[in-house]
Structure formats: C-alpha cells, structure tokens
Amino acid sequence: MSTETVDKPVKKESEAFFSKRRKKIVTDPLNDDNPITIQVLGICSALAVTTQMKPTMVMSIAVIFVIVFSNLIISLLRKLIPNRVRIIVQLAVIATLVTLVNEVLQAFAYDMYKELSVFVGLIITNCIIMGRLEAFALANKPYDSILDGLGSGLGYAWIILAVAFFRELFGSGAIFGFEVLKAIGFSADGWVGMDYQANGIMVTPVGAFFILGLIIWVQRNKTGYVEN
C-alpha cells in the first residue's frame, strides 16, 4: 500500500486536532470495539430503559455526558490519584456527575425523571464508564480521554437506540410516540387502516434480550468477530 501523506516531523505537542489516531479513538467503539456488543459492558441500563425511544434518548445523552466528563476529570487527576484508592475516587467522581444529571432531570424534565426512576442512579454502576476510566483515562491525556469517552458513549447510544427502535416499533407500533404503523394503515389483517395489534413480548424485558441477541448476531456476522 502506498501512502500519499508525508510523515510530518515528530512533534508531540502539535498533533493535529483531528489526527488519524484520534479519529480512530472515536470510531473504534462504534462498531469494531463496541462497548455493549463486543466488550459486554453496560448491559444493565442498556436494556431496562429501551421500551421507548424517548427515554432511551435521554438515557444516551445522560451517559455520554457522564462518560465524557468523568473521563476528563479522572484524566486531569490521573497523576494525583494514589493507585490503592482509585476505585473509590472514580466512583466519587461518577456519582457526583450522576447526581448532577439527576438533579437537572428532576428540575427540568420531571416526567422523564419519574419514568427513568432508578436507572439514572444506576449510571453510576454502568461498567462502561468505570471501564473507560480504568482502561483509558488513567493513562492518557485529557483531550484524548474526552474523545475516547465520546466514542464509547456513542457506541453505547446507537446500540440502545437500535434496540429501542425495534421494541417500540413492534411493541407499540410507534416511533418516538408517533404511531407509525397505525398511520400507514398496517394492521394484523393487512393494509386496512385499523389499530396495530401490539406485540406484547417486545414490551416485556424478554423482548429486549431477543432484540439485543439478534443485533449482536447481525453485527458479528458483518465484522466477522467470533467468541470462543
């Protein structure tokens, strides 16, 4: 393979703002190294909120916020934290950020706060966040850590949005609360414009397991990743 790009003289300080390596930090977790489907992290909250698109969207934004900022904070503190107490420090940082998210939701989106109930609090124990802090932020510079957090957050977000899309579509025939299947007149009897016969299993937790299992299957068929 011939490369057209001429290697610049190595100067650590002036690495391009969006260099190839940094782009890779963001894009890798989207597919090849997805936190949910490959690393098996953060599944707890991923499945619990995905009966509808709207709470899932809120959850994704909350997780991206927490992961980016906890990565940033831990990365800034990485030389100050003694190795023995790092877990507690990480938990304290994450819990503070989650409390912030919780208070904001409670103040500005009370319905959503009620709907997500304990699952906002459970972002604290979302293994993706802890995992990124341990694996990346403790050993890397702040800006790279932000990108890494963003990548992992987005990787998490698109999977749970995909799960929520199917669950809401089949479970209640709607997307973001808009009854798509009813609007185009699709029902159990064909194209007659009657009510969509909702598929109850999709609303129960069981539907989430099936959808996620199938998404993993499709994704791994594409990437060719095989677990032993």
């Binding site: 489907t37 098996v40 129960t204 937790p205 069981v206 539907g207 989430a208 397991f209 099936f210 996620l212 299992g213 199938l214 993993i216 299957w217 499709v218 994704q219 791994r220 068929n221 095989v226 677990e227 032993n228």
Partner: peptide
C-alpha cells in the same frame, strides 16, 4: 451454535427464554 451467535449472542437469547419461564 452459528459463529456470530457464539458467546454473548446465544447467551442473550437464552436469558430471554429464561425470562419467559420466570414470567
């Protein structure tokens, strides 16, 4: 088990079936 389903995929499906049993 089909290659793509090995590991996590099939485990998810099993968990789903167990969930039905627990229902």
């Amino acid at each position: 088990v089909p290659d793509g389903l090995k590991g996590l995929g099939i485990t998810m499906l099993i968990t789903g079936l167990m969930g039905i049993a627990f229902m």
